[in-house]
Structures are given as structure tokens and as C-alpha cells.
């Protein structure tokens, strides 16, 4: 008997056997079980990704975009210096002391968030800060920033409401490039002095015409009012962000 003969004789198998082999096989398990198992695995992988860092990254991205609420359990940044000391002499100038402030997490790209409350104005008739009105207040520097060698942009990102953050950017304030010889610099205004940041930051808000960069003492401030209908008033809490200087081109 040869293999070829055996192969030929197998060709004589009964047709009912051949027909049986043609029928689709009975599946041992329902077809949908592998699909459900695959979906469950996918969910696990997504959950693990979110838990291990995806969620954190998204939250940090949102914070960098000004969308994340600030943490309120941080240390207070109550200013202790007299903001009027040798700085403001204009009649239009109103000084506000910081009543409370917090510093949030450090964000990507070495940006820092602070929540800052503006105290009610001394004059009760002051309900909003008018155009060309100057406000100076103090933000104590974050310990991590003290001594860093960098210029920076201080950005008021949004007005803080007790219940939610508004999405309107009130003022985009660039503060930087200050002249070390000015009084502002001496008062610890945010600037670069001998390659180091001062220990305190002083925040100035100028509501002027867009693009107005004039300043009597040579310091340069540029303000952009993103939403003219939305102004800062005494007692408001604002969120401020310190960004690396490189992120915003100098004007």
C-alpha cells in the first residue's frame, strides 16, 4: 500500500461524511464573548493610563490654560508692606492691600499660579478701577521662585468668583524689563535684579488704552484688555500666573 493509494482511497469516503464536514462548526462559546473581553481590556488600559498620569497631565494642561480652579489650602501670601510707600502720588491712584492670597501648584513650563484677593478700596465710592487708574498691591513671592534668574510675565488670567472662575480674561498684563534704577525696582517690583528675582512681587494694574506703553519713569508696561465690559473691582479675587518670559514676545 502506498501513500498515494491511501490518498486515493480516502476519496471514496461516503458523501454523508463529506457533507458533515462542510457544515459550519459549532462554536464552543458565543461569538460576543471575545468582543466583551476585548472591550473590558481596553477599559482597563484606559483606566490605568488615566490613573498613572494621563489625568494629571490633562489637569496640568488645563491649569496652564487658566481653566483649573486654584487650590485654596495653600499658604497665605498676605502682603505686609505699605504699598503706598514712596510709589503712588497721583490723585487718581488708589492703593489696595492684598487681604489674602494663595499659591497653587507649580505648572508646566515653570509657570506659577497665585490666587490674590484685592482688598476693598479705602474710598467707598471706588467700586471699579477706572481707566488710567493705578492699583498697586503686593504678592509675596513663592519660595520656589525666590532667587531664580529669570525675567517673567505676570498675567492676570481671570477674575475669580466665589463659585466659579469666569472664563473672561480681564487683563493681560506684561510686567518685565523694568529698569533697575527706578523706584519701582527698588520697591521690589517684579523684575530682574542682578540676575535674581526679588523676594516680593508687586502687581500693578493699569487700565489704559490698548497698546499704551508710556510710563513717566521709564518702566514699560503693556496692557491688553481682553474684555472691556469686564473690569476688576475692589474686593475681587483674581488669579495671576507667572509665566516664563520667553513664552510671550516683548512688545
Amino acid at each position: 500500500m502506498s501513500r498515494m493509494q491511501l490518498l486515493e482511497w480516502i476519496g471514496g469516503l461516503d458523501e454523508d461524511l463529506l457533507e458533515r464536514s462542510e457544515l459550519p462548526a459549532k462554536r464552543n462559546r458565543p461569538y460576543w464573548i471575545p468582543l466583551v473581553a476585548a472591550a473590558a481590556c481596553l477599559c482597563l488600559i484606559c483606566g490605568a493610563f488615566w490613573g498613572l498620569g494621563g489625568g494629571k497631565k490633562v489637569a496640568m494642561d488645563n491649569a496652564a490654560n487658566g481653566d483649573a480652579p486654584l487650590r485654596e489650602d495653600e499658604s497665605s501670601l498676605i502682603g505686609s508692606r505699605d504699598p503706598m510707600d514712596g510709589i503712588m502720588d497721583s490723585d487718581e491712584t488708589k492703593t489696595e492691600r492684598p487681604s489674602a492670597g494663595t499659591v497653587s501648584d507649580t505648572c508646566q513650563n515653570q509657570s506659577y499660579w497665585a490666587q490674590h484677593s484685592l482688598e476693598q478700596a479705602d474710598s467707598p465710592e471706588i467700586t471699579v478701577f477706572f481707566s488710567r487708574q493705578e492699583l498697586d498691591t503686593w504678592l509675596e513671592s513663592h519660595p520656589e521662585l525666590t532667587g531664580q534668574d529669570r525675567d517673567a510675565v505676570l498675567k492676570i488670567c481671570e477674575k475669580y468668583d466665589a463659585s466659579y472662575f469666569t472664563k473672561q480674561a480681564l487683563l493681560l498684563t506684561r510686567v518685565g524689563g523694568a529698569n533697575d534704577q527706578t523706584d519701582y525696582a527698588k520697591k521690589g517690583f517684579l523684575h530682574k535684579v542682578a540676575g535674581k528675582l526679588e523676594t516680593d512681587w508687586m502687581l500693578y494694574l493699569f487700565e489704559t488704552e490698548e497698546g499704551d506703553s508710556a510710563s513717566a519713569d521709564g518702566c514699560r508696561y503693556v496692557f491688553t484688555e481682553a474684555d472691556p465690559d469686564c473690569a476688576i473691582a475692589p474686593g475681587d479675587t483674581v488669579a495671576v500666573q507667572l509665566l516664563p518670559w520667553e513664552e510671550t514676545p516683548r512688545s
Binding site: 500500500m1 502506498s2 501513500r3 498515494m4 493509494q5 491511501l6 490518498l7
Partner: peptide, 17 residues
């Protein structure tokens, strides 16, 4: 297939088969 079937039969074709 022929190699596999060689396991079953000796490859000796004969008239009797």
C-alpha cells in the same frame, strides 16, 4: 499530505492493495 500519510502506511505499492 503524502508525508503525513507515510506515518500510516509503508510506501510499497502492490497489486493486492
Amino acid at each position: 499530505i503524502l508525508d503525513e500519510l507515510a506515518e500510516c502506511v509503508a510506501d510499497t505499492g502492490n497489486a493486492e492493495a
